[in-house]
């Protein structure tokens, strides 16, 4: 027997077989125990058509692939003491402290910090600002300048959006928290800027302490979009609806808790400021309970 020739033939056969198997694995959208969720163009076209039927225009890029994710565990970034230090600095000036059910209020002159038991903080500055000519760029600059004196925005802050409240004429500047390129929606720094300058700052910020549970596939973004379309369909629609942003991150609310878990969500943001969170495991809409949340 010609072993040399036989080996050559076997090598060629196995090479072809491995190429075939490799391609089969690569091309199969449902492979890899849900490590990757894939959206094909036909699926995207169907969703876009359904959104159009519901009067919704999709301008946000839709990810073609989404990785499987595990839950993450969170805890509050700032204790009460750290929050006081963050907003008032290490000044020796007297800070008045007042405890109320569910919250503690600190005052220094015209500055008021309310620290809620669930970790949310609201800092108010009462009428001590210089009048400014206000537009969205100025509002954002004013908000960012506020943080410069405090060592910059909290680590991982990413600019999200800015809106003008039509009734009051004030601008609301949104930053969200990001860790390892994933949004921690619910971790947010929000500023309300009026004609007299920065009026209110809302801060909820978290530390990611690890992951929880097993890594599992997420639903396709198209499913999340259709879920939101179904919700918006029945809601009041004041004007043209445009989905401006679609992203995969984690959802949480501020809790009066030591530690908790957050689940992956698809975040769908409309141009008019509305935001929806769709649980990326179950496809159900997450409904934030507090009005501090966006």
């Amino acid at each position: 027997m010609d072993w040399a020739k036989a080996k050559t033939i076997l090598i060629l056969c196995y090479l072809v077989l491995n190429l075939f198997l490799g391609y089969r694995l690569y091309a199969d959208p449902g492979r890899s125990e849900g490590r990757l969720t894939v959206v094909d163009s036909a699926q995207l076209a169907r969703t876009t058509a359904r959104l159009a039927e519901a009067g919704i225009k999709l301008v946000a890029p839709v990810p073609e692939r989404a990785p499987a994710l595990a839950k993450i565990t969170l805890r509050h970034r700032y204790s009460q003491k750290e929050a006081v230090s963050l907003f008032f600095g290490d000044s020796e000036a007297t800070i008045l402290r007042q405890e109320e059910p569910g919250r503690t209020i600190y005052r220094r002159g015209k500055e008021i910090l309310t620290f809620y038991d669930n970790g949310a903080m609201i800092f108010r500055l009462e009428g001590n600002q210089m009048p400014v000519i206000l537009d969205s760029a100025a509002a954002r600059r004013i908000f960012e300048e506020f943080w410069v004196d405090r060592g910059g925005l909290p680590e991982g802050a990413r600019f999200d959006s800015i809106y003008r409240d039509e009734r009051s004429g004030k601008f609301i500047v949104y930053y969200y928290q990001e860790t390892d390129n994933r949004g921690i929606y619910g971790g947010q720094a929000v500023g309300m800027v009026g004609p007299g300058g920065l009026e209110t700052v809302l801060l909820t910020w978290f530390d990611v302490t690890g992951s929880a549970g097993r890594t599992r596939a997420v639903i396709p973004p198209t499913d999340a979009l259709e879920m939101v379309a179904g919700e918006v369909k029945v809601a009041e629609r004041p004007r043209e609806l445009i989905i401006e942003s679609l992203s995969l991150g984690y959802f949480t609310e501020p809790y009066n808790a030591r530690q908790w878990e957050a689940v992956p969500v698809w975040r769908v943001r409309f141009r008019d400021g509305r935001v929806y969170y769709v649980n990326a495991y179950t496809g159900e809409l997450e409904v934030p309970s507090g009005n501090l949340f966006r």
């Binding site: 196995y14 077989l17 491995n18 198997l21 490799g22 089969r24 694995l25 199969d28 959208p29 449902g30 492979r31 890899s32 125990e33 849900g34 969720t37 894939v38 599992r216 596939a217 639903i219």
Partner: peptide, 17 residues
Amino acid sequence: SLFLTWQVWWGTPGQYE
């Protein structure tokens, strides 16, 4: 080829559980 066959056979439980 054994590894790839195993992957094809056992490693594709579907997109969703």
